[in-house]
Simulated assay, not measured.
Amino acid sequence: MPYTRVVLLTLLALIAFAGNSLLCRAALAHTQIDAASFTAIRLVSGAVVLWALVVFRRGEHSGRGNWLSALALFVYAAGFSFAYIQLNTGIGALILFGAVQTSMIACGLWRGERFSLLQWLGLLLACSGLIGLLVPGLSAPPLSGALLMLAAGVAWGVYSLRGKGAGDPLSVTSGNFIRAVPMALLLSVLLIKQASLESAGVGYALLSGVLTSGIGYAIWYTALPLLKATTAATVQLSVPLLAALGGVLLLQEPLTLRLLLASLAILGGIGLVVLAANYHKPL
């Protein structure tokens, strides 16, 4: 696949990830929909659209998803939704993709991928930004919401890693979404007393499921086999800045000094990791 196409696919996927944060936060902070219902509608609508795309394409493809990846997808989606009851868009995205980075880079290094000195410095800079965000203080995020988002990030890291070489991206993503649906419906049944549906919230959930989740994840699974695990983890750290800017512009959320400095540190770290990969031999 041409390099420009890989870059374009990766960029589209990252925009979709940021869109998920915005849609979820908008639904849970500005409408009456509950987190379990949002999760269920998101996964069901994503599964329906992906299944329809697979049927429309009419072909035999290797890889149909699996239950472990579906479980990781469900844990990510549920933790993501419940965390955004408490967290602002940018802070939630920073915590999420910090956990993603940690899990995916650890796996990549364990599999034999190596960082150059500049890449290690970039990783240290990015991690320092995330740590600075979570240090207790007046603008520190709620602990319970932060822990839920950390769990969601680890689950997404597992899901992303399992996507490398899993088969046809659209077919695999469809299979994983379909398998995650009964898990989401069971969660909704268990929390039925807290259920609350509202038209705007349902609309946000549908947009998240159809566009930024279903189609966005299929795009991500297409790009994943062409990226190292460490690179895939690091480029996702650009999502928090996109989400934070969207939260400020679209949801009137505050742009705090802590969030700004953390974002600058993370993006600086990303630049070092990605650029150094092309110009320095690994240690």
Rank of each mutant, 00 (worst) to 15 (best):
residue 219 I to Q: 04
residue 148 L to V: 13
residue 213 S to C: 07
residue 227 L to W: 06
residue 144 S to W: 10
residue 194 Q to M: 12
residue 225 P to V: 11
residue 226 L to N: 10
residue 218 A to H: 00
residue 262 A to D: 01
residue 181 V to C: 13
residue 160 S to P: 11
residue 172 V to L: 06
residue 250 L to D: 13
residue 247 G to C: 07
residue 194 Q to C: 02
residue 191 L to E: 11
residue 232 A to R: 04
residue 154 V to C: 14
residue 259 L to N: 02
residue 243 A to L: 15
residue 195 A to H: 11
residue 249 L to P: 06
residue 220 W to Q: 09
residue 168 D to H: 14
residue 201 G to C: 06
residue 202 V to M: 11
residue 271 G to F: 08
residue 235 V to N: 01
residue 270 I to V: 15
residue 161 L to D: 00
residue 215 I to Y: 00
residue 165 G to I: 09
residue 180 A to C: 12
residue 210 V to I: 14
residue 151 A to H: 10
residue 277 A to N: 13
residue 268 G to R: 00
residue 210 V to G: 00
residue 166 A to Y: 05
residue 223 A to H: 06
residue 156 W to R: 03
residue 175 G to K: 03
residue 276 A to K: 01
residue 197 L to A: 08
residue 230 T to L: 07
residue 177 F to V: 13
residue 196 S to K: 12
residue 165 G to Q: 04
residue 201 G to Y: 02
residue 268 G to N: 01
residue 269 G to T: 05
residue 279 Y to M: 09
residue 227 L to A: 08
residue 242 L to T: 04
residue 154 V to N: 02
residue 224 L to F: 09
residue 250 L to W: 13
residue 220 W to K: 07
residue 152 A to L: 07
residue 252 Q to R: 15
residue 215 I to K: 00
residue 280 H to G: 02
residue 242 L to I: 15
residue 214 G to H: 02
residue 147 L to D: 04
residue 150 L to S: 04
residue 191 L to S: 10
residue 174 S to C: 12
residue 214 G to I: 09
residue 193 K to L: 11
residue 253 E to S: 07
residue 238 S to I: 14
residue 234 T to N: 10
residue 146 A to Q: 00
residue 226 L to S: 14
residue 239 V to L: 04
residue 247 G to F: 00
residue 217 Y to R: 06
residue 195 A to F: 02
residue 238 S to D: 00
residue 201 G to I: 03
residue 180 A to R: 03
residue 168 D to M: 09
residue 217 Y to A: 10
residue 272 L to G: 06
residue 161 L to I: 12
residue 238 S to C: 14
residue 279 Y to S: 14
residue 272 L to F: 10
residue 163 G to Q: 08
residue 250 L to S: 10
residue 272 L to W: 04
residue 159 Y to E: 01
residue 250 L to E: 13
residue 244 A to L: 10
residue 160 S to H: 07
